[in-house]
Amino acid sequence: MAYATEAEFAAFLAPDSPPAHARRLLDTASDQIDELIRFAVYEVDAEGDPVSVKVTDALTKATIYQAHYLMTTGDETGANANVSSMSQGGLSIARSFSSGGSGRSPRYSENAIGVLRLQGILPIRPRTR
């Protein structure tokens, strides 16, 4: 189940209309938010839903940002992650990567990450050897 509704997504996109596949975008975005918060710690109820309204609101907002990112990039599957230049109709996208970079497009919206970070539910785990 998505963290955001189609109505919330439509309100965010207003005055533009949501795409016909808005539900799929929200479901995919929610799955990706779940990837980001996999090791997050917050209180949940018996159904596993967050108890805190702030956490719920952050998950909704992050999901909407992520769905918008997926919609804008047109890459729900990640299949174009290594594309450095693309044209489709009147749209042309070119991404520049530093020589030290991974050569991949970011998987997650920076806005979504920021919302989760500000709410303290983006887990940061130190690497150990």
Rank of each mutant, 00 (worst) to 15 (best):
V51R: 09
S102Y: 05
S98G: 15
R23G: 04
N80G: 09
E43R: 06
N80L: 13
S96R: 12
A7M: 06
L116T: 05
A62W: 00
D49V: 08
S30G: 10
P50D: 09
S30E: 03
Y69G: 05
D31N: 10
L36P: 03
T60F: 02
R38W: 04
N82Q: 15
D34P: 06
S87R: 12
G48W: 11
D57N: 14
I64S: 04
S102D: 14
S17M: 07
L25E: 01
A40C: 10
L59G: 07
S96I: 14
L91T: 12
G103N: 09
T77L: 05
G78C: 07
M71C: 08
V53P: 04
E47T: 08
I93G: 04
R24F: 05
L91G: 01
V53R: 11
E35Y: 04
T63Y: 06
G74W: 06
Y65P: 00
Q32Y: 01
I33D: 03
L122A: 11
R95P: 00
A14K: 14
L59K: 12
Q32T: 00
K61L: 11
F97G: 05
A7L: 12
A112S: 15
V53E: 14
P106S: 13
S96C: 01
E43P: 00
A94D: 13
N111K: 09
A58R: 05
E6A: 03
M1K: 08
P123A: 14
S96K: 05
A40T: 11
R95L: 11
S52G: 02
A4C: 06
D34L: 07
S84N: 08
G90P: 04
A10F: 05
P126A: 10
V51Y: 03
R23S: 10
A62S: 12
A58V: 07
R129P: 11
P50A: 10
L118T: 12
G120I: 10
A2C: 02
